[in-house]
Deep mutational scan, measured.
Amino acid sequence: MTEYKLVVVGAGGVGKSALTIQLIQNHFVDEYDPTIEDSYRKQVVIDGETCLLDILDTAGQEEYSAMRDQYMRTGEGFLCVFAINNTKSFEDIHHYREQIKRVKDSEDVPMVLVGNKCDLPSRTVDTKQAQDLARSYGIPFIETSAKTRQGVDDAFYTLVREIRKHKEKMSKDGKKKKKKSKTKCVIM
Rank of each mutant, 00 (worst) to 15 (best):
K165N: 10
N86T: 04
K179V: 14
V160K: 03
S17E: 00
T183I: 02
K117C: 15
P110Y: 01
G151S: 05
Q43K: 13
T124R: 09
K175G: 08
D105C: 14
S39E: 10
D105V: 08
Q25F: 03
P110N: 01
K184Y: 02
Q70K: 14
C80W: 05
K178G: 13
Q22G: 11
G115P: 03
Y157F: 12
Q25K: 12
V81Y: 00
E63D: 13
V160P: 00
V14H: 03
A134Y: 04
S106E: 10
I36S: 12
E31C: 07
T87S: 12
T183S: 15
P34F: 08
N116T: 15
Y137R: 03
M111I: 09
A18G: 11
T148N: 14
D54K: 15
K178D: 15
V109I: 10
D47L: 01
V103P: 01
V125Q: 11
D33H: 07
T35Y: 04
Q70V: 02
T158Y: 11
S39T: 08
Y157M: 15
R164P: 01
G151D: 13
S106Q: 07
G12K: 03
I24N: 14
A146M: 05
S17W: 00
R41Y: 07
L52C: 13
G115M: 12
E3A: 11
V29N: 11
G115L: 11
V103Q: 05
F78I: 10
Y32P: 09
Q70W: 05
P110K: 01
G115T: 02
L133K: 06
T58G: 12
V81S: 02
D153L: 14
K184L: 01
V114N: 00
Q25E: 07
Y40E: 11
I187H: 15
D30N: 09
T183V: 03
I24Y: 08
R164G: 07
Q43C: 08
K167W: 02
G15K: 00
G174D: 13
T58C: 12
A11R: 02
D92L: 07
D119N: 03
F82G: 15
D38M: 05
A11Q: 08
V103D: 08
K176H: 13
K177Q: 07
K104V: 10
V109E: 01
L53D: 02
I139C: 08
D126M: 08
K178C: 12
G15V: 00
H94F: 03
T20W: 09
D105Y: 02
S89G: 04
K176T: 10
I93V: 10
K172A: 13
V186H: 12
S17R: 06
E107C: 13
C51K: 06
K42F: 07
V160A: 05
L53P: 03
Y64K: 13
R123A: 14
G174C: 13
R73V: 05
H27Y: 08
G10N: 00
I24L: 14
Q22H: 07
D108L: 03
Y137F: 15
G174L: 12
C51L: 04
S145T: 05
P110S: 02
R73Y: 05
V7A: 06
D92E: 11
D105A: 10
